[in-house]
């Protein structure tokens, strides 16, 4: 878990400045912060309000409206199961089940070791390669039950 001390304030400030402290860029600023911590630490919200000149309530409503933003800490690897229609008809639900069993968590939860967060994404646009999962920025296409189990082991190994 990230504490206030662990936040790189100059970096966060730099992100806000990169968008010329434009309040219309609020969502993109939060996405960029999310790229560093895998979530938006609530400690940065007062800074966002101050620099962008927006209310607390707007920051929370934007953060909770859009799926790409999380205010809760997430795992090192964000595993997203594509649940787009093409993946659905090719068995995405079975992939999700296999991952839930393997990681012992439900959708939206983070594994006890803090490594994996399991999410569902509505479509990553790799429909011809379905079923697809993404792990952070990597895309794995044409997976089945045994393939995703193997992929999880590989990431686990990478982390150790």
């Amino acid at each position: 878990m990230t504490t206030t001390n662990a936040i790189d304030w100059p970096k966060v400030s730099g992100i806000i400045d990169k968008y010329q402290t434009d309040p219309e860029a609020l969502l993109m600023i939060m996405q960029d912060i999310s790229n560093i911590y895998n979530y938006v630490p609530q400690e940065v919200i007062p800074l966002l309000c101050e620099k962008l000149g927006v209310r607390n309530s707007l920051v929370y409503s934007v953060a909770t409206f859009y799926k790409t933003i999380s205010l809760e800490p997430r795992g090192k690897f964000i595993v997203s199961v594509c649940t787009g229609t093409a993946c659905h008809v090719r068995g995405a639900e079975r992939i999700a089940e296999a991952l839930q069993e393997k990681l012992n968590i439900h959708e939206g939860q983070t594994s006890a070791d803090g490594l994996f967060t399991l999410e569902a994404v509505r479509c990553v646009g790799c429909c011809a390669s379905g079923p697809v999962i993404t792990v952070n920025k990597d895309t794995h296409g044409g997976v089945d039950r045994s393939a995703v189990l193997k992929i999880m082991d590989e990431y686990k190994q990478k982390a150790s």
Partner: peptide
């Protein structure tokens, strides 16, 4: 460029424009 945040409803014109303004896409 404005990057959306994973909300299907933002494909709707008025929601998209609200989102462009930095608000929730309603």
């Amino acid at each position: 460029i404005s990057r959306g945040g994973g909300a299907f409803v933002c494909g709707e014109s008025t929601a998209l424009m609200a989102s462009l303004e930095g608000k929730p896409g309603r």
